[in-house]
Nucleic acid binder design. Sequence first.
DNA 1: CTTGACAATGATCAATTGTTCACCTAAACA
DNA 2: TGTTTAGGTGAACAATTGATCATTGTCAAG
Lengths: 213, 213
Amino acid sequence: MKDLTTRQQEILTFIEHYEWRNGFWPSIRDIQEQFGFASTNAVMGHLRALEKKEMIERIPGQARTFRINRPDAPEKPEIPEDATEVVDIPVMGDIAAGYPDRVEPAGEIGRLQVDIQSAGFSSRRRSFALQVRGESMVDAEIYDGDMVIIEPRDAYDGDIVAALIDGETTLKRYIQKGSEPPYLKAENKFYPELYPVTELCVQGVAKAVVRSL
Amino acid sequence: MKDLTTRQQEILTFIEHYEWRNGFWPSIRDIQEQFGFASTNAVMGHLRALEKKEMIERIPGQARTFRINRPDAPEKPEIPEDATEVVDIPVMGDIAAGYPDRVEPAGEIGRLQVDIQSAGFSSRRRSFALQVRGESMVDAEIYDGDMVIIEPRDAYDGDIVAALIDGETTLKRYIQKGSEPPYLKAENKFYPELYPVTELCVQGVAKAVVRSL
DNA sequence: CTTGACAATGATCAATTGTTCACCTAAACA
DNA sequence: TGTTTAGGTGAACAATTGATCATTGTCAAG
């Protein structure tokens, strides 16, 4: 494949990009308008050049029928090299029915995959996602219906944790000051602030929130 | 979504297959020829039905501009570990520098992978994620630093949209009552409610929020 | 100085393609 | 019996779109 001029590269990028955005290819006049050409023929020239250099293919006379000739043919434009490690996370519906300090995989209602860079968890741990029920954490901007990604690990003061209370898993703030016994705190001024914790059973620490709109 | 007739299902399947094979969408006469219709209007009728049932979308008057609207129900009962269909979403940093009504892929700062069942978007559309800056949507529970997953499509009244205002992409509520001209609305009582929209440039509709804790 | 690539204008043409109108058939329905 | 819904014919129309003509200008290489 030969070298492209700057303009040709721009056109090619635009075409790829247009398809990526819209799901179909641009017309010649779409390209013309994008670059502010006064004539469609300006586009035609570039397309002919790109065809000659075997960067694109077209069906003569037919509208919006491009084919991009990428040597590596990635489906999406420019997937960066830094292979992001992806965590595959089961979405749990109701984990309260499971073992007290374990997650019951039967409760899986879906899967969520988030890469590490974006959300910052460790792939080593077996993270899972929880659908939030209730309003106990609205002051921490976590709302009913949100999905919270939980990483099973020990909690530190200030962490938001998924914990078992009365046989039900809820989201609470974990508070531990000095050597005092830890307690849980709801982040909703209409809820009781403190939860008596006889047997503290923390499932894990919240690392991210996902909400469908 | 309503049930399709056999014929409608056949047409829909053909359109999808055609795109799969050719990389672009069929023209009406391509479909006509495939089914041996004597009139293009036979196709038109089915397309209208499919649009009414919200299975497809089209750009009126423009050639080969289909969009398939699947609720993404993979009909495989036995789903192997790795078989979950995953949407690979580029995370955009600053998209204002790109094309006026398009997203600049160079602005990619990461990737996010979310599967379809969990977040409920279509894999056909080219979704992308945006990092939210500013507080203009805090009353819709979207905060500074959140990542919002945007699906490029036309906005309806009440949607949260990513739109270009003053060369900057912001998140706003899209309001369109009846036949009145649409406008944008910030969801923050400290912000001006209405935005004067001379040239409304909607990048897409917000489908999900992802926040790292 | 000339040649050839690259880039673009402006006008025009023709094919492709989406759209619409009038009209038809058959089955389902109430 | 009339009515609706799905499916279809046939013709004509108009918008979109790709293709082509002649022409201009720049700039680097030979």
